[in-house]
């Protein structure tokens, strides 16, 4: 074979960009359009943040975090008990849902893969994630509040745990499934049992992604109102036990935003701001955990 004869080879036309050609014009127009709609979609988010920030900043003082809500009609005071209550109920929810969720995910991904039971668990997890949160609240009310005879942080925690469970199961199962099969084979090939392979190789490799899922579930639960509405209920006072009505930030916003007193309304805005900040920080932390894995 001889080299191609370049002198007689086909000469290409000009390679320069032609800004006025119909194709280039169309592409530019579509780019502008897509940028416009993207900005449009961002407006609600920016508006909410700006509104919450503008209204909430005026009462963002130390007292807001450390004091109890003021009596109706009075100014001052804070939502210290509600902040603590949110942390408390979410902590209870996490303690319940994380072990259940992660162990279920390990079953789905490592031991039950392709079994009937796993298919059913997957199906019901999906159903559960679609159940309206008010229904979950009603369930926790019936199961915990009515049997124990009191609204409580535990009842709120149970409701939030049920809410968090599908998210944790699904993200953890995905995290485990994305661990390369090469690792499992290598471990089994060295004479490890499936349990040893799961606990010592697969699970550690999936931990960052599992943590991300847990953080996102926590962030969502912290902001939910409906499940705590009639489970944790509300309180004007500090918690002394987990078996008493407990204030939460979301519930406080619900009550105070519609109260006819300016002092309460201001606090509701500040509480909203703190709640948004809490959710935002948790989500950012979740991101950071995932990124560190890729280093």
């Amino acid at each position: 074979m001889t080299a191609p004869d370049f002198a007689t080879a086909r000469r290409p036309g000009s390679l320069n960009r032609k800004p006025t050609s119909p194709r280039t014009l169309f592409a530019s127009a579509m780019t502008v359009l897509s940028i416009f709609f993207t900005l449009l979609a961002l407006i609600p988010l920016v508006a909410v943040l700006a509104y919450v920030l503008a209204n909430g900043l005026s009462r963002l003082d130390v007292a807001a975090f450390t004091q109890l809500p003021p009596a109706p009609g009075l100014g001052g005071g804070g939502f210290g008990n509600a902040l603590l209550g949110t942390l408390l109920t979410v902590a209870i929810a996490a303690v319940i849902s994380i072990p259940f969720g992660v162990v279920a995910a390990i079953y789905l991904s490592e031991f039950g893969r392709d079994t009937r039971l796993a298919d059913w668990v997957n199906f019901f997890t999906n159903v559960l994630s679609g159940v309206p949160s008010i229904v979950i609240g009603a369930f926790a009310y019936a199961v915990v509040v009515l049997t124990t005879g009191t609204f409580s942080a535990v009842a709120g925690g149970v409701a939030l745990a049920i809410l968090m469970l599908p998210t944790i199961v699904r993200t953890a199962a995905e995290a485990l499934e994305s661990v390369p099969n090469d690792f499992r084979q290598a471990s089994i090939g060295l004479g490890a049992t499936r349990l040893q392979t799961t606990l010592k190789i697969v699970f550690p490799a999936a931990v960052p992604a599992i943590l991300t899922g847990i953080m996102l579930a926590i962030a969502r639960a912290a902001g939910e109102t409906a499940p705590v509405l009639f489970t944790a209920s509300f309180s004007q006072y500090w918690n002394t036990t987990i078996w008493q009505p407990t204030a939460t930030l979301s519930r406080l916003v619900f009550s105070f935003a519609t109260a006819p007193y300016p002092g309460q309304q201001e606090l509701a805005w500040t509480a909203s701001l703190v709640l948004v900040a809490l959710v935002l920080v948790t989500s950012i932390l979740a991101r950071l955990v995932t990124q560190r894995r890729h280093k």
Binding site: A186, G189, G191, P204
Partner: peptide, 19 residues
Amino acid sequence: PVEVRRQVGMVFQKPNPFP
């Protein structure tokens, strides 16, 4: 089979060290 694999080791096509 776990005992078998302790006697009969394996090296795979794609290098697969643990992370």
